[in-house]
Amino acid sequence: MAPVRLARAGLNGGSGSLRPSEQDERWNESVTGVRRPARLSGMAMRFLRLLFWLLLALLAALFMGRNWTDVTVDLWGNVQADIKLPLLLLIAFLIGWLPTMIRWRLRHWQLRREAERGRTVSYAPSPAPAPAPTIGPDA
């Protein structure tokens, strides 16, 4: 069954209330017959995404505030650097994350270019070449 769009106030001229026929359509039935609510709208998902990032930023700020202490890092020889702990953790995270992200973005760009050209990417191994005929003493 296709997802049902609910009329909302201010969007596409909706009155904000559901018509009687739509009240029963708010629930979608999957292939197994289990009733579940219709998918969230784009506005609701954007709000939830914003709420998630705000909570994550709040937790990061609390962590940084409670752990804002100096850490001495031995670099090489007698060279030492004093750096705040949250900054050290951020640098370590970026050192691990950036190469992976760059590789993923390059691969994504390459696949998009190949799709635009109409080529398909195949990772199947090429078939082994046929063995060459042998010329033996019997020939």
Rank of each mutant, 00 (worst) to 15 (best):
A2C: 07
P3T: 04
V4S: 08
R8M: 12
A9R: 10
G10V: 00
N12M: 11
G13M: 07
S15Q: 15
S15R: 12
G16R: 03
L18N: 08
R19G: 09
S21L: 10
Q23P: 01
Q23V: 13
D24Y: 12
E25D: 13
R26G: 03
R26S: 03
N28H: 07
N28R: 13
N28G: 10
N28M: 14
S30C: 11
S30R: 09
S30I: 06
S30G: 14
T32Y: 08
G33S: 00
G33D: 02
V34Y: 05
V34D: 09
R35L: 14
P37T: 02
P37M: 02
R39Y: 04
L40T: 02
L40I: 09
L40V: 05
S41A: 12
G42D: 15
A44F: 01
R46E: 07
R46D: 15
L50Y: 05
L50K: 13
W53S: 05
L55M: 07
L55I: 04
L56K: 05
L56Y: 09
A57K: 06
A57N: 12
L58P: 00
L58V: 13
L59G: 07
L59Y: 09
A60G: 03
L62M: 09
F63A: 11
F63C: 03
F63E: 14
G65S: 03
G65H: 02
R66E: 12
R66F: 12
W68D: 08
T69C: 06
D70M: 05
T72V: 11
D74G: 08
G77V: 06
N78W: 06
N78E: 10
Q80D: 14
A81Q: 06
A81R: 06
D82F: 13
I83S: 02
I83C: 04
I83W: 01
K84Y: 04
K84S: 08
K84Q: 15
L89M: 13
L89G: 00
L90I: 11
I91F: 11
A92H: 03
L94K: 09
I95D: 12
I95F: 10
G96K: 02
W97Y: 15
W97V: 14
L98P: 04
M101Y: 10
I102V: 15
R103H: 11
R103Y: 07
R103P: 00
R103D: 13
L106R: 15
H108Q: 11
H108G: 00
W109D: 13
L111F: 05
R112D: 00
R113H: 11
R113T: 13
A115S: 08
A115T: 03
R119H: 09
V121N: 04
Y123W: 13
Y123I: 10
P125V: 02
P125F: 02
S126K: 05
S126T: 01
S126L: 15
S126W: 00
P127G: 05
P127C: 03
P129K: 03
A130H: 08
A132Y: 01
P133Y: 05
P133Q: 07
P133C: 06
T134Y: 02
T134V: 15
I135H: 09
G136N: 14
G136A: 12
D138M: 03
